[in-house]
Amino acid sequence: MIDLHKYSAIMVAGFKQELVYRLDYFFSLVFRILTALVAIFVWITVFRTTGASSIGGLTPDVLYAYFFIANAISIFTINDTVASNMQDDIQSGNITTSVVRPVKYPTLIFFNALANNFVGLLTVLIPFMIIIILVAHVSITPVTLSLFILEIITAYLITSALYFIIGSLAVYLVNIWGIISVADSLYLLLGGGVIPLILFPGWASQILLLLPSQLSVYTPAATLLGIISPSAAIGYLFAGVVWAVVLVVLAALWWKKVSQNITSVGG
């Protein structure tokens, strides 16, 4: 039988950790919103200059809502907590104590990060969605909402598996901040966090939609805003599920190999 108390204790610790510097967290959220507003102001000007009612099939309202919601989604889906926590554990030697704990290290690290990311989900993603629904008059059907939730969960699994593989590299490299930062930036760009994937040239857009990163920002935002049809969203979600399974299996196999090479401070 699964001992839920064990996992809830890990999550409570993660929540507390994330909210230690509440005021700092609040101000960083404000600047996150302002960053989304920069893109919106730019596109307002572009639409005004062009005089077109839509660009790349996207109307002004949809595009503005996209940048707003994309920013919120990325807080939950593009999160390097797993990799950075693993690096900290390996550098400090804390990873060795995980051997004597009643929970396996990958489970521990996953639930701890989940708690951290839940703070982003509760304080940003859900409020932003409510604002978008009210301000941009986005009509959300039960189908698009269900697809959106499934996409977010799948994206979270993909990101966690990817960052788990990256995090485990710390066993060999010790300091992986550079790699984590490269992954963050690439994931945001390739996932549609900077520009919606539909606006890239056709060939680039088609390639990007095949990558696991498509599910991190573009597909959930596009599903919610009706940029892509539910049937197309199901196709992207299916591709995402395949990516998630492949990456989780890869991460498990990789960890089996890597965990044999762990040396903590002192050898």
Partner: peptide, 9 residues
């Protein structure tokens, strides 16, 4: 606030 996230952002 003893933090730096806000300034980085």
């Amino acid at each position: 606030v003893r933090g730096s996230s806000a300034v980085s952002r």
